[in-house]
Design a protein around this nucleic acid. Sequence first.
DNA 1: TCTCTGTGTCGACACTAAAA
DNA 2: TTTTAGTGTCGACACAGAGA
Length: 286
Amino acid sequence: MTLWNNDTEIQFFKEALKNFASPEQLFYNLQDGYFAYVPKGSDAQGQTLQSRNSLIGQFTEKWSKTLFEPIAKELGLYAINSVVCDELGLSRQSSADLALCTTNNTIQKPENIKLLFEIKMSVVSNYKYTHPNNVDYVADYKQHKGNPALLRSDSMLKAIGKSINIRVSGIASTKIPVVVLGNSPITESYVKKVDFLKTSGVIQGFWSLNPKPTNSDYVKNTPKLGFQTILDKNQLFNNCKELITNDMNYFSSMISKMKLGEIIQIANQENTDIAKAEKFLNLIRG
DNA sequence: TCTCTGTGTCGACACTAAAA
DNA sequence: TTTTAGTGTCGACACAGAGA
């Protein structure tokens, strides 16, 4: 299995058609034919395609699970879709798209969840459908009107919001890394923000699983690697391994220097570095 | 001044599951 | 059975700045 590319998107359309999805559900019905997206300069004739949403959502979540399964296995874990965990604010309606866990269950305890993924993937390039079963590549994402995946500002906001929601749901979340998976680059306006999200510990990374979304220029990596374009499965494995094996802790606060100095002073009285850190974390969490 | 383009926010719509 | 709430997708729209 390879990383995301145009063939993956064609496979999505063909599978959906085979499962009795109509061309009207999957494509814009334009004057020149059926298109995945409205090309720049074309008129959408008031159409806003909605029927593809849940199909592509299901496809990308399952695709990601399949991609991560061998990685999980090598790390002694399971890759699981739709993970529910009350302590992390992950309800049945708002479950984790994908997670790596120590047990093979949908309902999980926080201590068994080793890595959380939020998936924000969509059809990236444009395609043309012709009867009865042909789907052909038309152009990259720069040639059509709709923005795919992480190039949409509200997709970024929703990914960030969901991650914050996990972080503020309780102490149990502070040991679990959160990663956003996409299949597109990000916009220039989010370059600084994803790096700050990483250094501040809220989100451990935005990873695009699409090595070559266009032949022209695009944001490949940000300076502090808050966003990375994953180029091969080895890189993906190493990233996961690092997040899982490092015993990391999320913490945050908004306090005076005076109070912060006091906390450091008290924590420093412990004997070992680990004990100092634990004391510090306890104090800063009030 | 007008047009074009990039950016950010809000809302429409489809779907699903829980609650009434 | 109907209503309500939550989620995910992209289009419409407003605004600002650059260039004609």
